[in-house]
Design a protein around this nucleic acid. Sequence first.
DNA 1: CGGGTGTTTGAGGGTTGTCAACTGTTGTGG
DNA 2: CCACAACAGTTGACAACCCTCAAACACCCG
Lengths: 246, 246
Amino acid sequence: MQNPLVRKLDRYIHLSETDRHCLAEAVSPVRMVAARTDIIHEGDDPRAVNVILDGWACRYRQFANGRRQIVALLLPGDPCDPHVFLLDVMDHAIGAITPVALGQISGGALQTLTARSAGLDIAFHREALATAAVQREWTVSLGSRTGIERLAHLFCELHARLAAVGLADDTTCPMPITQNDLGDAMGQTSVHINRTLQELRGLGLITLRSRRLTIHDPAALARLGHFDPTYLHLTAEAGSAAARRA
Amino acid sequence: MQNPLVRKLDRYIHLSETDRHCLAEAVSPVRMVAARTDIIHEGDDPRAVNVILDGWACRYRQFANGRRQIVALLLPGDPCDPHVFLLDVMDHAIGAITPVALGQISGGALQTLTARSAGLDIAFHREALATAAVQREWTVSLGSRTGIERLAHLFCELHARLAAVGLADDTTCPMPITQNDLGDAMGQTSVHINRTLQELRGLGLITLRSRRLTIHDPAALARLGHFDPTYLHLTAEAGSAAARRA
DNA sequence: CGGGTGTTTGAGGGTTGTCAACTGTTGTGG
DNA sequence: CCACAACAGTTGACAACCCTCAAACACCCG
């Protein structure tokens, strides 16, 4: 299995064989994190980049009253740094949803990479911009989409992001997340999530079983969720096996 | 009146007199934008930074059904670049709420500044991280705060951000935004915003009149909105007149 | 097989949206 | 200085959406 960070960055700008090789070399596997535990890097090199190699995680805020708001879902290939070491205080936490395998690029290696390759420099920049765009899109979802639209949009986004790192095929992708977590992400209760899922199933748009999502009618689901993949800023799959077959 | 960008960055890390002077020199006033028109930079230097020198603006998404979601409010001192020129397509627009005065730092000048001064380099980095934190906080607000909590939180945030650039005193700040715009930002209708404002007034927490907000009980307002200024990552006012008086 | 976790269902209530009309404020031109 | 238009704020009635609480059911794993 190819390094998901390599696959991801290759979708922001086409990377040369050399770039892909150097990037993969720079990522060293670091550690496993158990599901439902926090990912913390206290004392880490603040310039290092930690990357999710396998599993799902989330950025979240926990409230005193027990409510939790997930503000971002982190998938394989996603950097998962809080960057709080440049700032003095942590304003949110990062937790593993499933067991997570973490990798790391040291600050020095990163600087070398981006200095030597303009392509990698641009790729990392675009990744940061795309991450910000995803955050804005979540703000849009929570602010102005109904429950069913939010879920439809989320499923479209996750499918597209997973497909970008080779973890989804045309109609299915992993979805190892509980209805409770979905509620914490969409700003709703798990009870309402459950009813909305039933509605989506009733419309024949999806099935969600055994931690796996199947999208029966991608176009209809995208229409329902007002999903326009533009904001993900992904280019055509250039370095992938699929593209090479073509 | 001091350059608001200088004041703002000085709140992320204390800047030397030289840094402040060089930064102010690097900002050239560019143009005025009328209220309720879009701020567009097509063809601009993608590495340049456009800054709001005066007035309020917002990032927003417009939907086909007429609904609009404001995803960020931009105040004096805030960079207002969509950064879309690194990416190919614009995923949102930036519009002036009031008449806006824009300034610009060219890409070359910016590079020179951050190369010569470690302080300015860190300041720009922290600004970007703080902006991302604000975006996350909006996601939190829309996802898990009630109407009255959202407004209370927003007023606390705006007061703090305006105070950071010297545009607010202890209890009042400008608030040149309609209830319609507040609704577009908070994911609610102007009708509901109106009722929520009456509730805040009824509790004796604020008055909002003639485009000016007065906070009668800052501590109570912060408590109601679960406002914790940590996420703004502002340090104590180091270079300000108030600090120098002390 | 049993316990824990996750999902599903029901009933009732609170928050917010929609629609429509009315009032107040501001700015402009006669 | 007034008349007027345009915009912003306010109010009421009703409906839709979503939450809360509580319980039952299904699944997974040791």
